[in-house]
């Protein structure tokens, strides 16, 4: 709790940051987003659109995790990395399973198109 023993300039998380890291992170992220933009504009078929967008997104996020946040397995950062690895599946599960469940719910609980078209509206 005490701060009096500290020389904050020597803290590993302070030492970790370098200009090169930040330039790289920014350039890779920006390049990935520009790439994603052009992929989306070229209107590929849906499956390859998903794959390519997910790929560029992954590149941007990995670059940011490694270079902005400085996540690695060093003593200073290991627990951030571990907690991220434990949490990310939950992030994906909560979105993915929801989408999967609703793909079924929508298919079965949406009224038949026949009924809807025969309606008075």
């Amino acid at each position: 709790m005490g701060t009096h023993h500290y020389d904050p300039t020597q803290h590993p998380e302070v030492r970790q940051g370098t200009i090169l890291r930040y330039v790289l992170a920014t350039v890779i992220s920006a390049a990935a987003m520009v790439g994603a933009y052009y992929v989306a504009m070229s209107k590929p078929p849906l499956v390859s659109l998903i794959e390519e967008l997910a790929g560029t997104l992954l590149v941007a996020l990995l670059a940011q995790a490694a270079l902005y946040f400085g996540l690695d397995v060093s003593r200073a950062q290991i627990w951030k990395s571990v907690s991220l690895v434990l949490t990310l599946p939950l992030f994906i599960i909560s979105i993915g399973i929801t989408v999967w469940a609703f793909s079924s719910l929508y298919g079965r609980t949406m009224p038949d198109p026949a009924i809807m078209s025969s309606m008075a509206m």
Binding site: L53, Q64, Y68
Partner: peptide
């Protein structure tokens, strides 16, 4: 930095994937 990460997800998912 976290806001940038969230934004790239929003941009790719909502903007680009949304067409």
């Amino acid at each position: 930095q976290f806001q940038a990460s969230v934004w790239v997800v929003i941009y790719v998912y909502v903007y680009l994937f949304g067409g």
